[in-house]
Nucleic acid binder design. Structure first.
Length: 226
DNA sequence: TATTGATCATGC
DNA sequence: GCATGATCAATA
């Protein structure tokens, strides 16, 4: 069990030491089995990287590195180096988010400081052969935060008006709301237009891949066009 | 083929 | 049940 890093510098040093290694190598160092695919192990890469870097495992509503206030997110990249998937941020308290301000939001807290860890996710590569890239310790720029805030206010405003059922995945420029549940039958409390409590599908905030792609393009200059 | 909606495992 | 970690897979 790796101990938690004491400083951001130590965290970054660990991330640098990890870059270039394959998931197979890292799994072997930790004596964990490598699945053939992620159909029944969807969080496997994230959990593996957590352990490598010494994040506090668990399901608490806290940053992965509590002392540092840093959140860890892996970023699955396709063969071109572009994120393949959106990034889950947090679940939504549908019965209270309408009363919150952006400053108090879980989205803002979660994204205040993030260590992005790119990992190859080209389906043509065997899981154990996929390699970890160069991590990026990131905080949103003013422009990025303003953009996220805009989406957040629009989306939570819809919830606050009692129109949660109008929320679809296509809403939101960079931040979107999609189901986040065990299955489509899951239910949790929300409020309708009349303020009456009712049961609805649990939902979460996700960052679109276009947003995370930008972060990486700031880190790695684009290759010259062929 | 990009995206949205659905789903899987685990800990407390 | 709800939080954590996400990817799968049907659809547009």
């Amino acid at each position: 069990m790796t101990t938690a890093p004491d400083t951001e510098a130590e965290l970054v040093a660990r991330a640098d030491a990890m870059s270039g290694k394959s998931l197979g190598e890292l799994a072997q160092e930790l004596s964990v089995d490598v699945p053939k695919d992620f159909r029944r192990n969807k969080g496997w890469v994230g959990t593996l990287i957590e352990r490598v870097l010494g994040a506090t495992a668990g399901s608490r509503d806290e940053p992965d590195f509590v002392e540092l206030g840093v959140e860890l997110k892996t970023l699955p990249l396709d063969a071109r180096g572009t994120p393949r998937e959106s990034t889950f941020v947090c679940t939504i308290a549908l019965d209270e988010v309408g009363d919150l301000e952006w400053e108090q939001s879980r989205v803002r807290r979660k994204l205040a400081r993030v260590l992005w860890v790119p990992v190859q996710a080209d389906p043509a590569l065997a899981v154990s052969e996929r390699r970890v890239g160069t991590s990026l310790l990131w905080s949103p720029s003013e422009a990025e935060e303003a953009a996220l805030r805009f989406d957040w206010e629009e989306l939570t405003g819809t919830i606050g008006r009692g129109d949660v059922e109008d929320l679809r995945g296509h809403l939101g420029r960079f931040l979107q709301i999609r189901p986040k549940a065990a299955d489509s039958h899951a239910r949790r409390r929300g409020f309708d237009r009349d303020g009456a409590s009712f049961q609805t599908l649990p939902r979460g905030f996700y960052l679109r891949a276009t947003f995370t792609a930008r972060l990486l393009s700031d880190l790695v200059p684009p290759q010259a066009a062929p």
